[in-house]
Nucleic acid binder design. Structure first.
Lengths: 238, 238
DNA sequence: TACAACACGTGACTC
DNA sequence: TGAGTCACGTGTTGT
């Protein structure tokens, strides 16, 4: 008898989504959807897993961790071969406490393992959905596209951020006059009525300063009613 | 007899990685590692897949694509129930060409399916490795961490890029004088020798222009040897 | 010891 | 029909 070894526990329908993968608007949330109609308790195939890890021969000589991967499949095949024993379906066993406890332990272990894996998959699906929400404009809904698009998107964003940062620094340097392409020019003008023009010039200088025009030096000559001022201000070549 | 239904083809060891998942420096490339020692041809379990998709009952009444996810597990369970038939292990069959061809087709189909799935997994692992190279500084190596870190990283990069873009626009507006916080101030000065000062003023204006100081208006009065100029220039309050 | 993470083969489903 | 994708349960390995 060919057993499919699917674990259809009675409580499994509380967790199993078995969703529609190609659903276009719910990409990876099909596991969360709870089932509406209760299953009428068709099978109790827990006993089919009684021999679960029954003849697990261990083969401790396999060097784990490295390049020797071919041994693993051999090992597993040997396990499959060794596990080809009697099926032991749901007939009454000798009710020794040891066997009962062992069976319960084994069964609960497998069940917990399955549940953990199911939760893990669900969590991963949620992470996929979250990531897809970030790249949905440039990616398809399948996992590979999501991961690839995320990688290229992160790369693009990194590059864009870097050159934006550079451009920002350039602009800031331009404003602050810390550009190395700056030049000094002479701005020369004269005002009369220096008693009042001083204030106006100070105001003008203040304005110029507020315009981030940095003055390198000021040479002023007050002669009579005229104030001749020569400023070295920094400017930049465009 | 319980059959595990693992597909251990003879050529399978050419592709099967069976890697070490927790290898710390090769996170997802363990599939690529080829096997060194050839397996000495232990089993030929192709005939175990002779009844592969033998009793696939279809249940066409299930509305696919939507919220009806509970039907799927029922359907699959019905499939499992219905497939609990005679096993048909490796005994000699009547060698009809039709059955032979069918068996070859089925077997090769299952094998190709397995290979495709293996390639798909390998591709996905490569994508994971690529994505991990993008987020390796802030993520662990497991899949869930990679996907989650990628999501939050993309979010952070988006936010950073946006505010960098905003800051950039602000700086650009500050430079170009397109700030809405700008004010007009009067810069008033006078020069004599207007015949030569025109050029100097033009030069000064050019310099001011090259400094991105935008002039709103110029009012010049030439009286005698003096040029009185009043400019409205835009400036910004800090 | 139990748990977490993974790769695997497989059936279901979609296009 | 066939290729592609997915979720599933399972065995294995590292912590």
């Amino acid at each position: 008898m060919q057993m499919d070894s699917y674990y259809f526990h009675d409580d499994a329908h509380l967790f199993a989504g078995c969703g529609v993968p190609g659903s276009p608007d719910l990409p990876f949330a099909d596991l969360i959807a709870s089932l509406s109609e209760p299953l009428p308790a068709v099978v109790e195939s827990q006993s089919a897993f009684r021999e679960y890890r029954g003849v697990g021969l261990e083969l401790p000589g396999t060097a784990r961790g490295g390049t020797g991967n071919g041994i693993n499949i051999h090992r597993r095949m040997m396990g499959v071969l060794g596990r080809m024993g009697p099926a032991a379906e749901e007939e009454e066993r000798p009710q020794h406490q040891q066997q009962q406890a062992a069976g319960a332990v084994e069964s609960s272990r497998g069940f917990r393992h399955m549940m953990r894996e199911r939760q893990r998959r669900e969590k991963l699906s949620q992470s996929y959905a979250d990531l897809y929400a970030m790249v949905s404009s440039r990616s398809k809904q399948d996992k590979n596209s999501i991961v690839q698009s995320a990688a290229v998107y992160i790369h693009e964003l990194k590059v864009a951020k870097e050159q934006l940062q550079r451009r920002n620094d350039e602009l800031k340097a331009k404003i602050l006059g810390h550009d190395e392409q700056q030049q000094c020019v002479k701005v020369q003008f004269e005002v009369d009525e220096p008693s009042s023009s001083v204030d106006s010039m100070i105001g003008a200088l203040t304005r110029l300063k507020s315009m981030n025009v940095k003055t390198r030096g000021i040479h002023s000559i007050l002669s009579g009613q005229r104030l001749t001022t020569e400023m070295n201000v920094e400017t930049t070549v465009s």
